[in-house]
């Protein structure tokens, strides 16, 4: 399989702290990958280095054969990287419809139309409706985002990431803070993604994460601890150590 995203010795340093320390891995086209690890392991920082929200202080990020280590966020988005945020990051004072319009026009020239009509082209509109349907938000188009429930906002995050026509989708704890019923919806949305779309997911809920992916990367203290198939992760001693603590396992 071709490697779509290659991380080569990626390091992110904040002052004296190495939040991500020499992580190397490669993600194949169409692969589903989970990044797990305890709090402070560097998962979100690694996402930020991949998408350009922070710049890697050392190492390389190569996306589809191109070194994007120094590219700004919007340029990486233009190459097909789409992400959701751990803390909901939407346009709260705009309607669901306008949020979707912004998501779908991010990579099209239509965003520079200074005097054009605000409506989406018919094909884009159909795609937005499809994504809203997938995210269980049909009929909510006119609602202001700040008036949506938290769960609906998370669903909208997914819908927006989807209509941006990504080549790789990075989901940062999409189910964080959701009720069990809402988690099921999010898992369903992820399962219904096109199978050729590459996806990386950060998730604390191991059952959710391991049920969705082909391969798992475990981070601890900024280092890559282990990489394995989901079935092998649960039994892995190193993973149990970082999650449960060495002392407890030996006790």
């Amino acid at each position: 399989m071709t490697k779509q995203l290659i991380l080569d010795n990626v390091t992110v340093q904040f002052g004296g702290l190495k939040a991500v320390d020499g992580v190397s891995t490669a993600i194949a086209m169409g692969e589903r990958r989970a990044i797990i690890g305890p709090n402070g392991a560097g998962k979100t920082t690694l996402f930020n280095a991949i998408t350009g929200v922070v710049m890697a202080t050392a190492g390389k990020v190569v996306f589809e054969g191109e070194d994007v280590t120094r590219s700004p966020v919007h340029a990486r988005a233009a190459k097909g990287m789409s992400r959701t945020f751990q803390i909901t990051n939407l346009f709260p004072n705009l309607s669901v419809r306008d949020n979707m319009r912004l998501a779908i026009r991010g990579l099209s020239k239509a965003k520079f139309s200074l005097l054009g009509r605000p409506e989406l082209a018919a094909a884009d509109d159909a795609e937005a409706e499809r994504a809203l349907g997938l995210s269980r938000l049909v009929g909510r188009s006119d609602t202001l985002v700040k008036e949506l429930s938290y769960g609906e906002q998370r669903q909208l995050e997914m819908a927006m990431a989807l209509v941006a026509r990504p080549r790789i989708l990075l989901l940062d704890e999409p189910a964080a803070g959701l009720s069990p019923a809402e988690r099921v919806i999010v898992a369903d949305i992820i399962r219904s993604l096109p199978r050729d779309l590459t996806m990386i997911i950060i998730e604390h809920d191991m059952d959710l994460a391991l049920g969705l992916v082909d391969w798992v990367t475990v981070l601890n203290n900024g280092h890559l601890l282990v990489e394995a198939a989901p079935a092998d992760i649960r039994g892995n001693k190193d993973v149990q150590d970082v999650y449960l603590g060495k002392a407890r396992r030996h006790a």
Partner: peptide, 14 residues
């Protein structure tokens, strides 16, 4: 209006 609400989200949308 999107920029007014969330610049970081606008950047990540391209």
């Amino acid at each position: 209006r999107g920029i007014k609400d969330s610049e970081s989200r606008m950047r990540s949308l391209g």
